[in-house]
Design a protein around this nucleic acid. Structure first.
Lengths: 261, 261
DNA sequence: CGTCTGGTTGATACGACTCAAATTTGGTGG
DNA sequence: CCACCAAATTTGAGTCGTATCAACCAGACG
């Protein structure tokens, strides 16, 4: 527990560790497990908003763990088009095993100012050797991350602009709620309409008009980086949101995203 | 080696083991490594074309390894729309760790008649405990699988119908070549235009018209389930295909997809 | 030989894009 | 505290890529 206290300052402004919250959706963790998680957050880097954490082509040296702030994974095409392929919120790891690969096939960019733990392969190995429950939880984390990637594929391939945006908002809201960053239908929402466009495969103009529709339909408020979901149930309905892909149905905790919205 | 011979009948019609070929793109495997891989293929099931191997909602019990034939992962929406989120060709595992999850968030369906090895968690654990190189190779396999999923996200989000189809054809050709199922620009190609539509987020009608364009431009021939790529380089150019996401740049073998096309 | 699945064609409609400009917001320095 | 600038949002008009709907055709199969 000493370690936990030591790094408290790095974890965020008076909040519980997001990783621990997140992994506890899968399995209960002991105090030692949590201390071990805190211990790997020794090396914290702060990245300015809109800077790259790592770029396509780079050799991966660290596992990254989001402590505070938002980031995204993106890929760029030679013709300049850009696709955000996933979002990172506090508590998310970027690829527990990346260092096996020679070079990154995508970039990771900070959306907001970011606090990231830089974890060496050795630290990762030590953690997995000593803490089997945490190891299991990390595997679960990776499986959920790829399930989210599949859901995004479905989102881009089959949903309309309106459904797509609604789906993305619900997903992010639920994920944030899972790490104590959202409640009562409200959360910080630092994405610009441009970011939303790159994430949904739409143009910023069309995102703008579609958000207006969502507002007009009484589903959301979104202003100055604050999102308010006015009717989560209806938003889930119109986006055909099925939470099964987040795999929250484990012993650890139950889907409590409905609280208050 | 005795084991290898024992299961030869299960591997395919006179072909080398696809898994071994595939994993050797990452690292050289010893005879014992290969024998261990062959050993987990003890329990082989044959599935008819167009049947589900496992359905959304099922509890995962086995790791599946494609021995022969094609399959796909797909998700369905309440309104009936269907998205193929990934393809499986011989040598591909379906989620090395799935059994951690309570229930499947998607289905896996056979495209052709299929031979699949059904591997128990215990067999998987035995393999990873005894064969560290194979374990590393399996991690690499999973990383590549999620990289492919990201590339599909990019494909659906940013590429036109023409580029999207071209990209998919190139990817499948290269993956097949990596397991000895494609050469000289030719390969079996059992997908219907309907399947292609579900994989690319287009309609079957538009897939039909776009394939005609690809033919007219002298890039491909596609007839009676046989694909011929006439100009791989140009097909890669028009689809902005960057092979980096397949992570073939390892000690094991080098990208030799250009052979003959 | 009829049936069925998969492929092809044509006509029309619409969702999302493009381009261009106006407006609002947020940050910065005087 | 205000003036200024850049970034983000909003609006409008016109276009285009892809969807939709409806036939029709070819080959495979029983």
């Amino acid at each position: 527990m000493a370690v936990l206290t030591d790094v408290r300052g790095a974890i965020g402004p008076g909040r519980a560790s997001a990783v621990a919250s997140k992994l506890e959706a899968f399995t209960r963790l002991s105090a030692d497990d949590k201390a071990a998680l805190a211990a790997i957050c020794r090396n914290v880097r702060v990245i300015d908003a809109r800077r790259d954490l790592i770029s396509e082509g780079d050799r991966p040296r660290f596992v990254h763990l989001m402590i505070d702030g938002w980031a995204c994974r993106y890929k760029q095409l030679p013709d300049g088009k850009r696709q955000i392929v996933s979002m990172f919120v506090p508590g998310d790891f970027c690829d527990v095993n990346v260092y096996i690969l020679r070079s990154m096939d995508h970039s990771i960019g900070a959306i907001t100012r970011l606090k990231v733990a830089m974890i060496t392969p050795e630290e990762m190995n030590a953690l997995t050797n000593q803490r089997p429950r945490v190891t299991q939880a990390l595997w679960w984390h990776e499986l959920v991350a790829t399930a989210i990637q599949r859901e995004w594929t479905l989102n881009l391939g089959q949903r309309s602009a309106y459904e797509r945006l609604a789906h993305l908002l619900v997903e992010l809201y639920i994920r944030l709620a899972g790490v104590g960053r959202a409640q009562d239908g409200r959360c910080d929402f630092p994405l610009t309409q441009n970011d939303l466009a790159d994430a949904t495969g739409l143009t910023a103009v069309h995102v703008n008009r579609t958000l207006q529709e969502l507002r007009r339909d009484g589903l959301i408020e979104l202003d100055r980086k604050q999102l308010r979901i006015l009717d989560l149930k209806r938003l889930m309905d119109v986006s055909m949101f099925n939470p099964n892909y987040l795999h929250l149905d484990h012993e650890g905790r139950h889907l409590d995203a409905n609280d208050g919205a």
